[in-house]
Simulated assay, not measured.
Amino acid sequence: MKPLILLAPFASLALAACGGPQTPGAKAAHERHENFEQIGKSFKALGEELKKDAPDVAKVKESATTINNYASQVKTWFPAGSGPQDGVKTHALEAVWKDPDGFGLAAAKLTDAATALNSAAQSGDLAAVRGAVPPLGAACKGCHEKFRAKDD
C-alpha cells in the first residue's frame, strides 16, 4: 500500500501538467479565448449566409443573437491576473489593463454594433443586417488594433 501512497503526488502532478489552465488568470484567458472563438464563428457564419442568394433568416437571427450575447459580456472577460503582464499566454495586450477607459469605450462600441446588428436581424430585414455588418467589423478591428497582439 505504501508504494501507491508515494506515487499519488506524482500522479497528481502529471495529471495537472496535462490539464488546461491552472491559475485563475490562465483559466480566465482560456475562457476569454473560447468566447471570442464563438463570436468569430458566428460572424463567419453570418457572412457566409449573407453571401447566399436566399439567406436563411433563421440562421442570420441565430448568428446575430450569439454575437450580441457574447459582445455584451466582453468587458468582463479581462479580470486582473489574466494578462501577459501576469505571465498568462494571451493575445490580449497590457493596454487592456493599462487603459481601462479606452478598452471600455472599445467594448461599448462592440456592444452597440452587436445590438444594432441583432435588432436588424430580428426584424428580418436583410438589407438592414447587411448595413449593420460593417460597423460591427469596424468595432472588432478597432479593438484589435489597440488591445490585441498580432497573430504570429
Rank of each mutant, 00 (worst) to 15 (best):
A106T: 02
P100I: 09
A106H: 00
K59V: 09
D125K: 08
V60C: 05
A107N: 03
D56W: 09
G131Y: 04
E94M: 13
P134R: 08
A29M: 08
V74N: 07
S63K: 07
D53H: 04
P24N: 11
T115K: 06
W97L: 03
G81C: 05
L50Y: 01
A54H: 14
K98P: 05
H144S: 03
T23R: 13
V57W: 08
L93F: 10
V129H: 00
A71Y: 01
F36A: 10
A127P: 06
I5P: 15
L110W: 03
S123P: 03
K98Y: 04
A95W: 05
P3Q: 12
A17L: 14
A108T: 15
E49P: 05
P3I: 14
A58N: 08
L117E: 00
G40A: 13
G20N: 11
K61T: 12
D125N: 15
A28W: 00
Y70G: 07
P21R: 08
A113V: 02
K150A: 15
G20H: 06
A128N: 01
V133N: 02
I39N: 00
G20Y: 04
S119F: 05
N118I: 02
V96W: 00
P84D: 14
A29S: 12
N118H: 07
P79A: 03
T111F: 06
S82A: 06
G131D: 15
K51T: 14
A128Y: 01
G87F: 04
I5M: 11
T23M: 11
G25R: 02
E94K: 15
L126V: 06
D56P: 06
K150L: 13
L13Y: 09
F43G: 03
L110R: 00
L126T: 02
G87K: 10
A108C: 10
S42F: 00
P84V: 10
C143Y: 07
A11G: 11
L15Y: 10
D99K: 01
K51I: 15
H30D: 14
L93Q: 09
T111Q: 09
V57K: 11
E37P: 05
N69A: 13
P100R: 05
F78W: 04
K59I: 03
T66L: 11
A128T: 07
A92T: 00
K98F: 04
H91P: 13
P135Y: 01
V96L: 07
S12L: 15
L136S: 01
D99N: 08
V96I: 15
M1E: 13
H91F: 12
G104M: 06
